[in-house]
Amino acid sequence: SLEDLFATLNRHVDNNDLAKVVKVADQVLAIAPGDEDAIRCKVVALIRSEAIDKALNAIKAASSLPIDLSSYKAYCLYRQNKLEEALDLIRGLEKTPMVLHLESQIFYRLGKMDSCIDSYEKLQKLKIDSDDLKANIMASLVAGG
């Protein structure tokens, strides 16, 4: 049943067995085309497997569905160094921590250090903090002079 497939999918997610996540997500989609959780699991597993082209294909395949995969797409575009395209996509998105991290990384690559620091400040206002974030802020300050 669909419930059994999702239980299997969940186990693979917990084990970070990314190839099996994709496989079982596809099995769900064969029974329930357009299932949002299955599509999100597939796209995230492909991104986490560094299969950026395949992730973009899965996002494209779902483009007619009422599911917003823009933040994933923006990340994939960033990985392909299509920075302005990624930024255009981000402008319309809710500023979740993931989106703010991505935005700051894009600005950094574009050499727009003031905007980069702005994004980091928004993350700190959301009480998002980590050693990695501190390292990136330091890098931006150094690069920004």
Binding site: E36, C41, I47, H101, N136, A139
Partner: peptide, 21 residues
């Protein structure tokens, strides 16, 4: 310039499947 860590990657999470099982 220094390499920025890809924190966005680490922030991409699987959806919760709790209510699907």
């Amino acid at each position: 310039s220094p390499i920025v860590l890809d924190i966005a990657y680490n922030s991409i999470e699987f959806p919760s499947l709790e209510n699907r099982m």
